[in-house]
Design a protein around this nucleic acid. Sequence first.
DNA 1: CGGTGGATTGACCTTCCTCAAAGCGTGTGG
DNA 2: CCACACGCTTTGAGGAAGGTCAATCCACCG
Lengths: 233, 233
Amino acid sequence: MKRISPNEAWTGVADCLNCNIRQSVLFSDLSEADFDLVHRPIDQLTYARGAEIYGMGEKATSLFTIRTGLVKLTRFLPDGTHRIVRLLRKTDIIGIESIVSDSYSHSATALHPTELCRLPVGTIRELSNSNSRLFHELMSRWHRALSEADRWITEFSTGPSRDRVVRLLLWLSEVEPDGRCELFSREDLGAVLGLTTETASRMMAELKRQGYISEPHTNQFLCDIPNLRRLVA
Amino acid sequence: MKRISPNEAWTGVADCLNCNIRQSVLFSDLSEADFDLVHRPIDQLTYARGAEIYGMGEKATSLFTIRTGLVKLTRFLPDGTHRIVRLLRKTDIIGIESIVSDSYSHSATALHPTELCRLPVGTIRELSNSNSRLFHELMSRWHRALSEADRWITEFSTGPSRDRVVRLLLWLSEVEPDGRCELFSREDLGAVLGLTTETASRMMAELKRQGYISEPHTNQFLCDIPNLRRLVA
DNA sequence: CGGTGGATTGACCTTCCTCAAAGCGTGTGG
DNA sequence: CCACACGCTTTGAGGAAGGTCAATCCACCG
């Protein structure tokens, strides 16, 4: 596994009006006039695999839109164990709790190389007062986050280990063409599914032997979607 | 177990201005003038143990504030299994997704005798356009729901069965004085924690034998909070 | 070409599930 | 008022699934 220095880098000021994922982004409904109200610049940032975006309990000053990549949100229990409670990808928002909370509820870490737009929470608060569509868009985002959380509970925390692994593979393939999907370490896989590293590894190996998945390159998988679906029907 | 006919009953029109849980309720910040905008009446309803409040996928027309009682939200998987994804109690809101979604995301069922106020979603939408404090209050509710969902994942879906049971007992005791808490069927207990009925029962029996909890009346428990906390530290 | 960190595999053991029987409390009908 | 039936809970025995610990493998890197 390539491990670049886990770091962030500023890569420019976002040009929201000409954003190439504009239609699926928080600001999709904003007019040019609205953008004039955005005084602080919106930075674009790049994070290497493994880089931490923010830490649990840290002062929450910004929310982020994911342009590319994959981000995990992790929560820690008093007894030292931890669990990944969500995975977020292209067009998802992380740190939405900054709108109503002083601190971040999770720590956020890039699992793949990741590009983000950083939106200062002040900007969002100001805009949402004057723009009811942004208001509505924010509500939808909360709803989406909650639906994902529910899915986490029912699909990734319930049932036998093989089914959980399969459901995650299907989830990862949702946004990629022809059953392609990029995975990450077995340890993180386990932390997503509430399993040990070894069990996660065993299930992946078994699915591979049974021909449900293949691995042309390290952590690049090809999934037989229809048959995987049948496994968890 | 007393099993009254599982049904709902209308018990009056709410007097929000003089609500006895006003300070912790969605409308806490509304002025008398705001209430003049509420044209449709806000009904109070009573549900017996086991009564369904709404079903998953049903057309979402209202949200509800819980005045007393306990409500479970259940989700069903394609393979027929189901899981309780949240428990809600006094001052919590259920059906908040009706603001942004056409249908309910879960089915909601009363686990204890429950009193609700039914708020037509149209009323909420109208009010939230004009009242930015309601807007903010709604955001906080989304945030609360999401935090609870995260807790569900980390505390009730992770780790050995005994710890999960203990964490749930602590959660139930949070709002009651001196370690008192009212439980429900072992089957529901299992569905909350992702365990079988039998395992849930065994863990309860073991905690009872070890003196961590006692059961003065059926499903009325007394918990030794400090020691229970120590078990899951 | 050896070193390093994750992935895989194996052996063993604990935990939890499955299936089945017995217990208990509540309500019903004789 | 008692006896029985019904539904849920508890308990038991046995087995399957997953966890633990440890050894080996493998890809990538210096």
